[in-house]
């Protein structure tokens, strides 16, 4: 994460204006009902399901390990987020964005 970049609360999802289903990443048409009525919305909370540490990145010098996690929101959107450190399965996190990229903080 870039500490100097602006962050915003929650991550951007798209929600169908017809059936109400929310998706991450954003979609063009609703896979559930087929409507062309997707609107931006936010998901703010999630729970950690799996984590990994990226220990090696081919060709990168002085690579520092990065913590990534698969998290699930209460509406079942599944998001791969960056974490600041280890977070065991079941950890509740707050979601935020830096640019378009999703992050989580316990």
């Amino acid at each position: 994460m870039n500490d100097t970049a602006d962050t915003t609360t929650g991550v951007t999802i798209s929600r169908c204006g017809k059936c109400g289903t929310g998706y991450y990443p954003t979609r063009l048409l609703c896979p559930n009902c087929g409507a062309n009525a997707m609107k931006p919305d936010k998901a703010t909370d999630a729970v950690v399901e799996e984590t990994t540490v990226v220990r090696h990145n081919a060709g990168q010098q002085n690579w520092q390990p990065r913590h990534l996690a698969t998290v699930r929101t209460p509406e079942n959107q599944i998001i791969v987020v960056g974490l600041e450190g280890p977070a065991p399965r079941g950890t509740k996190i707050k979601l935020f964005e830096q640019g378009l990229a999703p992050y989580g903080r316990a």
Partner: peptide, 25 residues
Amino acid sequence: SARRDLLTPLGYSGPNSLFAMLTQR
């Protein structure tokens, strides 16, 4: 675009990290 905008900025190093978590599942 999903990888470029949503994964690469996280420190994603290619599909290894995604399949690491899939392997855990």
